[in-house]
Design a protein around this nucleic acid. Sequence first.
RNA 1: CGGGCUGUAGUGUAACGGCAGCACGAGACGUUUGGGACGUUUUAGCCCCGGUUCGAAUCCGGGCAGCCCGACCA
Length: 422
Amino acid sequence: MRLSQIFTRTARENPAGETSVNAQLLERGGFVYKNSAGIYSYLPLGWQVLQKIATIIREEMNAIGGQEMFMPAMVEKKYLDATGRWDVPIGFEVRGKTDEKANFVLGWTHEEILTEIAARFVSSYQDLPFAAYQIQNKFRNEPRAKSGLLRGREFMMKDLYSFHADQADLDRYYEAVKGAYHKIFHRCGLKTIYTLAAGGAFTASNTHEFQVIAPVGEDTIFVCAKCDYAENAEISKLKNSGQCSQCGGKIEERKAIEVGNIFPLGTKYSEAFGLYYTDATGNKKLVVMGSYGIGLGRVMATAVEIHHDENGIIWPENIAPFKVHLIALEGGKTEAEKIYKDLIGQDIEVLYDDRNGADLSAKAFQREASAGEKFADADLIGCPIRIVVSKKSLAAGGAEVKRRAASETKIVQLTQLSSFLL
RNA sequence: CGGGCUGUAGUGUAACGGCAGCACGAGACGUUUGGGACGUUUUAGCCCCGGUUCGAAUCCGGGCAGCCCGACCA
């Protein structure tokens, strides 16, 4: 993509009042636009990142047998009445302008919707187990949206639901999802801590959260310095003992961001919707369920919180909007154009800063940018590899290659550039 | 939902109750190109409603909105 043609623009100043790093850098870089508190538009650059995250999640969900689908954003009252959750204050009621009473809520979770669907199709033990997921926006009436993308009122979520013949099979799948989640977060450049937690409005059972340690996090966890066993402060019995119940190691208190969670639901929802199956011996039994969530925007924001420096974002390789940020400076325009086409031909993702300055005589693009501005933008946007082509680099023998996270540069011959990157 | 702070051009910020300024951005012309260049010039604003006052961006009241702390929460 050519930087000269992206309709957004980077900003020199932080947005007024925003103190969280993710809000500052994502808005300055033109990744997101805040429409309301906790409600964001994803701009072209931010959407690239979000799609990278979505792809990773899809790959790992599909690998454990998840079937992708899509459910409605508007959830009718009858669904939440069935489980007594209509009055949970998390939801935004939806009404027509002339309606006296709301009969719908904007979906903040979809257990009820999918359980009813499952009840239509599941009748035998041979129909189990299965798991289905969607990537869709959730709406939650947060009393306090905060910290940029970290706690929003509308946010994109992957929600997976699994259906099993018995608790043992749920337990088996729960472990499979746990493994998939660790892979997902690892691929997104995040180290997560598997944390025992409460079930909130979803289940009375204990649940598990995937927590990333960060000062901006709103959760407090107690984590063992030795074995990483952790409990959320809301249920923790470790906070007083100071000693790990698993290995005896030292317990530390940490602020953390919850990027995902997994819930054993039991039979609460299958009871409410009459989701039964007939087992091999002809007995009618309730289906046992689990649900599993990941907030995509929160993953993106957390990556920024963890990976940045004073000049901007340092995207983890797998979720960077582009792999390469190509800059043409004076005397390098012709070569840069060729490199740009070559890299695209090799399926190497490249953001090309083709703004004027490289060739002042040909005003091929509307906007100009100085060399310094191009460097500043490359640092702010944070693609993993920066390539500069200029009179100076060509005299040195090729293009200058620099990793965003490193300070040293290297000259690579133009003919070897794409193989160097692959 | 309680508390605190804050709302001024596209963005970031000034202005004692008395002509709303600066910087960046954006447009034009020229110069310039290895770390957010320079000159000339143009552009564009007081969150909303009410009150006090000769006069309100400024004071008062009420809304609405944003940020932060707490409560809550995935």
